[in-house]
Design a protein around this nucleic acid. Structure first.
Length: 456
RNA sequence: GCCGGGGUGCCCGAGCGGACUAAGGGGCUGGCCUUGAGAGCCAGUGGCGGUUCGACCGCCGCGCGGGUUCGAAUCCCGCCCCCGGCGCCA
């Protein structure tokens, strides 16, 4: 009924400890929180008794006259002094307890595998028939161990997506680096069309599935930002607007989560399904040296996001549905992928469980993250005060929030540039995207070819 | 950005310094009644804590944060948001 973290602390602290242990974190804070909570309760009772005394006295003053009144007022004033001292102590205890509880990462779900690093993430299924360059066969087999994944051997080495930008003449990161810095890009013509078509494809799919299309604010106040993510993530990835209490969003997940902040949703309105579309801005601090070339890891891209507010008892079902939606989208694109169950140590504080969809990248010989699908249970909703009203018993409870990428434009483009690349460097356009290009005379239709060989 | 009006519970809406405890209505939940549905009647319907766990007791709560007062939904200050008017603007 209340916040799960406080409830666990009081009733089943071992669950919190087990969760922290799985994440490879210090467990001792839990005992400290238990101690603080017990003391807070004692202090709370004490303060309440004092306040009660004062209320009685204060009410009696209205009926008193003359000297008796003076005396009672004096007494009340003295009592107030004591109360404010005890209240101060109460506040300190509560703040200390809250500080610990708010710093705790989400309780990991029982189905989350143990492990601390990315390498230990557990593949759970594979889809598609990857094109594997002969030189990568060993690597491929390693990554598909335990699964019987059909693949096609190719004897030419595909160009990496970064080289493809130059080869096609449809993108430059050098000039963008000069004018905006590293991890920015200029894309031209066909790749821009592709970016737009990918977004259209995703919103078309999701709105047909009953998701409400939403274009959110691209900036949020700090208060709301701290409700959706941790301080560390916030510092590492969020851009601040100079001189204002505003931050550029890292994903539409964040403003969508904040959409129902401080609200009470009626039970019948759940689940609420949203398909967000927005640019995403990320500092990528702490990713130095990783994916420095091309547009795989960039400061800015477009993304269509799935977001669900659900009843607690339905959130695990929705988690599976969201990853299935992402899979259907990527199957539609015809890009081979695998789904991995992220280990506890690599989860991120907000999620209780996370699946990644990783696309096969023929030029790199490995699977790379394209989609991230998380159940955040009540971690965000507690901080943002998003509750719903249960008809039975008229009780309020925190909703669960879930989010999953549908398509992130630049990453999807890298996957297409590598998976749909022909030996001569031509890129075939996935069939599902063509309807979204047809209406534009200047958009590419079936192939993307190098700029210089194209008819103007 | 300026001027004016406003923000009250799940929703609507009264209250505008202490007494009757946020009136009243709607909705919802439970009970009674009924062959059933409905109507009607009764009760419940913010958070936290204590508890002999009883339908019990207490504290806090009227956009958010401060202040005045023995006592604040009510008065004062700051902030956020909404509505109307003016200004500015793609």
């Amino acid at each position: 009924m209340p916040w799960s973290m406080l409830e666990y602390l009081r009733k089943k602290p071992e669950i919190i400890k087990e969760s922290l242990r799985k994440r490879g974190l210090d467990v001792s804070v839990v005992d400290e929180a238990i101690r603080l909570d017990a003391e807070w309760r004692r202090q709370y009772t004490k303060v309440n008794q004092l306040r009660h005394k004062h209320n009685i006295l204060s009410k009696s003053i209205a009926k008193l006259k003359g000297k008796e009144k003076e005396k009672a007022i004096k007494e009340a004033k003295e009592l107030l002094k004591t109360i404010s001292e005890e209240e101060k102590r109460l506040r300190e205890l509560e703040e200390a307890r809250e500080k610990i509880l708010l710093s705790l990462p989400n309780i990991v779900h029982e189905t989350v595998p143990e492990g601390l690093t990315e390498e230990e993430n557990v593949p759970i299924r594979f889809w598609g028939k990857p094109k594997v360059y002969v030189g990568f066969i060993e690597k491929f087999k390693e990554q598909t161990r335990g699964f019987d994944v059909e693949y096609e051997v190719i004897h030419w080495k595909p160009k990496g997506h970064a080289d493809m930008l130059t080869f096609l003449g449809l993108g430059t990161t050098e000039k963008a680096g000069e004018v905006a810095g590293s991890r920015f890009y200029y894309l031209f013509d066909d790749l821009v069309w592709l970016d737009i078509a990918l977004l259209m494809y995703a919103i078309d799919y999701l709105t047909r599935k009953g998701f409400t299309l939403i274009l959110p604010p691209y900036m949020l106040r700090e208060k709301y930002y701290l409700g959706v993510t941790t301080l560390e993530d916030f510092r590492d990835s969020i851009y601040k607007i100079e001189g204002e209490d505003l931050y550029l969003i890292a994903t539409s997940e964040h403003p969508i989560a904040a959409l129902h902040a401080n609200e009470i949703i009626t039970e019948e309105d759940l689940p609420l399904l949203y398909a967000g579309i927005s640019p995403c801005f990320r500092k990528e601090a702490g990713a130095h040296g990783k994916d420095t070339k091309g547009i795989f890891r960039v400061h800015q891209f477009h993304k269509v996001e799935q977001f669900v507010f659900s009843k607690p008892e339905e959130s695990w079902e929705w988690h599976e549905k969201l990853i299935r939606n992402a899979e259907e989208l990527w199957q539609g694109l015809g890009i081979p992928y695998r789904i991995v169950n992220i280990v506890a140590g690599d989860l991120g504080a907000v999620a209780a469980k996370k699946y990644d969809l990783e696309a096969w990248m023929p030029a790199q010989g490995r699977y790379r993250e394209m989609v991230s699908c998380s159940n955040c249970t009540d971690w965000q909703s507690y901080r943002l005060r998003i509750r719903f009203l249960k008809r039975k018993g008229m009780v309020r409870d925190y909703v669960h929030t879930l989010n999953s990428t549908a398509i992130a434009s630049t990453r999807a483009i890298t996957a297409i540039l590598e998976n749909y690349q022909e030996e001569d460097g031509t890129v075939i356009i996935p069939k599902v995207l063509r309807p979204y290009l047809e209406m534009f005379p200047k958009a590419p239709k079936e192939y993307i070819v190098p700029r210089k060989t194209r008819q103007k």
